[in-house]
Amino acid sequence: MEIAVVGKSEFTLGFRMAGVKKILETNGDDLVPIIRNILKDKDVGVLVIHNDDMAGLPEKLRITLDELVTPTTITIGGAGESSNLRDKIKQAVGVDLWK
């Protein structure tokens, strides 16, 4: 399986330097069809996406990405992921343990 990176060219360029070949550049408008195509691709094990792009996705697709094990989605950049996890922890355990 491979790593796939989706995002704007300035976000994805560096990943090419780490040898990642499955890079899908987007200007934001065609993000949803690109993500849907990745979900169909059985060779993608980890999907890397910027937090701002993830926040712009429809809620249903975001939930799908959150729940899937393959591909496992990881978001970087910005502060979205930790606040998302913090909310989940608060909801499940009842205490903010992400401090």
């Binding site: 780490a18 959150d66 496992t72 990881i74």
Partner: peptide
């Protein structure tokens, strides 16, 4: 230097992907 930094980043991404997905699934 940039290539090395991105190699380290991909390494960390793989580790974080496993741990964060595990934590999300456990919380659910």
């Amino acid at each position: 230097e940039a290539a090395e930094a991105y190699e380290n980043l991909v390494d960390k991404i793989i580790l974080a992907a496993e741990i964060e997905t595990t934590i999300k699934k456990l919380l659910d």
